[in-house]
Each structure stands twice: as structure tokens, then as C-alpha cells.
């Protein structure tokens, strides 16, 4: 059986809020290492990969591999019944028909119990190769969100160009063009504003802004975001969570004529 207790319901709330417009039904794969999810969007352009390691939970118990097939819209409805600071416990049998959620208020003596009906989801798992990326950019997640939002007003796509010490986001639209350049920036006083660009070779790739704007819904999960790029492979957008857990998005690049 599965029993996984989260100190703060907000983590799961934010994860589901961040991915539910991209994927609708997905399996939460539970085993002794934690709870994982991998799902493509309908058009097979983007892939979501979430890992909540067992250390994220306290306690965490899962004796067997259990796949919880959940409709994310339903999951969101139930998670909205939890306060952000509630303690959240997920429970399921070894061959479950439902997943149970218990929300406990730490301040009040209130316990809320919900069940969500599970579904059989035949999901393909893709093998994501280990990649040495040519460029890795770490920047404030809010900054990345703002860039994507701003440029999406002008164009459908953005070119991300990484070169020594600088990354440029460029778009060309019907009404005009836009470009935002960021340089390496590190401040002891405001480390949350740091930008770090690691580069082994210059990279330039074009991506759909619609998907990037969607990924940025995860900005509330982490103050910083990591963008990993190599020529002719999908972009990795990673939000790191506590205990080595993560929410990752992969986006296939646009292909030139």
C-alpha cells in the first residue's frame, strides 16, 4: 500500500496547477523511491516529467509499484479543498480503485477526507537520454515567466540564443520584433536575481511560446528555473524542488524550412 504524507499541501497543489493545462489524464507511478509522473501533451510537442522523491514525504511508505491513474481536473478540484498549509496524506491500496487524500489543519482540529476515483490509463513511457547540454542557464523563474509572457504578445515563437556570458530571447512578429538579453549576474545581496550561463558551445533554437508560457505556471514552485539547451534536441525547463525532487518540461524545437 501507499501512504505518503506531505508537510504542506501547497507543493502538490502547485504541481497539479502547473501541469493540468498540458496533460489531462496521467499515471502517478508510486514505488519505494517516490512518486513519478511522465506524460506528453496531446500534440506530442511537450513532455512533463515530475519526480517527488520519497524524502519529500515524511513518512513515505510504498511496498509495491502502484500506478494511480488520475484525471488532473478532478485532482485539482479535490486539492483546492486543501489549505496551502494543511498536512496532506495520500493513501492507496495495492490494487486501488480510488486514491484517498486526507487534509489536516495544523492549527485547527479539522480533518478532511476525500477519495478520487482512479482510471486505467495506458500511457507510453519515453526514454529520456542523459544529455550533456551545450548551454545551461539558471535564472529567476519570475524573470523567465515575464520574458515568455511579454514576447508571446508579439509572436508565436521565440529564438533562444546562448553565447558566451549572455543569453538572448528574440522574437519576430507581425507588429514588430523583440529581443531581451541577459548576462551572467551574481549578487550577494540579492542572490534570487542571479543569472548563471554555462556554455560549452553556442546554441540557437526556436520554440513555441505557447508551451513556454504554459510551463511558467510552475514558477510558484521555485524561485529559479534552469534552461538546458543543445542544438537540435528538446529544451529542458527544470524547476527544482526540495529533497532532489523536480518538475521538468521538455519542449521539441521548431524545425527550420
Amino acid at each position: 500500500m501507499l501512504e505518503a504524507r506531505l508537510e504542506q499541501a501547497s507543493i502538490l497543489k502547485k504541481v497539479v496547477d502547473a501541469i493540468k493545462d498540458l496533460v489531462q489524464d496521467c499515471n502517478f507511478d508510486c514505488n519505494d523511491s517516490g512518486i513519478a509522473l511522465q506524460a506528453m501533451d496531446n500534440s506530442h510537442v511537450a513532455l512533463v516529467s515530475m519526480m517527488l522523491k520519497s524524502d519529500t514525504f515524511s513518512p513515505f511508505r510504498c511496498d509495491r509499484n502502484i500506478a494511480l491513474g488520475i484525471n488532473l481536473n478532478s485532482f485539482q478540484k479535490v486539492l483546492r479543498c486543501a489549505q496551502n498549509e494543511d498536512i496532506l496524506t495520500l493513501k492507496a491500496d495495492d490494487s486501488p480503485d480510488v486514491v484517498s487524500l486526507v487534509f489536516e489543519s495544523s492549527e485547527q482540529d479539522r480533518i478532511s477526507e476525500y477519495d478520487i476515483k482512479l482510471m486505467d490509463i495506458d500511457q507510453e513511457h519515453l526514454g529520456i537520454p542523459d544529455t550533456e547540454y551545450a548551454a545551461t542557464i539558471t535564472m529567476p523563474s519570475g524573470e523567465f515567466q515575464r520574458i515568455c509572457r511579454d514576447l508571446s504578445a508579439l509572436s508565436e515563437s521565440v529564438a533562444i540564443e546562448a553565447e558566451k556570458n549572455a543569453v538572448k530571447f528574440v522574437c519576430n512578429g507581425d507588429i514588430g520584433n523583440g529581443a531581451i538579453s541577459l548576462r551572467n549576474h551574481s549578487s550577494v545581496e540579492k542572490p534570487e536575481q542571479n543569472v548563471n550561463i554555462e556554455l560549452s558551445e553556442p546554441v540557437a533554437l526556436t520554440f513555441s511560446l505557447k508551451y513556454l508560457v504554459n510551463f511558467c505556471k510552475a514558477s510558484g514552485l521555485s524561485g529559479s528555473v534552469k534552461l538546458c539547451l543543445s542544438n537540435e534536441v528538446p529544451l529542458l525547463v527544470e524547476y527544482e524542488l526540495a529533497s532532489n525532487s523536480y518538475l521538468r518540461f521538455y519542449l521539441a524545437p521548431k524545425i527550420g524550412d
Partner: peptide
């Protein structure tokens, strides 16, 4: 989708 790459062309099925 002309112009848009497919993620399955990069990550094979397991």
C-alpha cells in the same frame, strides 16, 4: 504541424 518538432522523434518509446 509543419515546422514544429515532435517530442517522440527525440525520445524513443521505452
Amino acid at each position: 504541424r509543419p515546422g514544429q518538432g515532435n517530442i517522440m522523434n527525440f525520445f524513443g518509446k521505452k
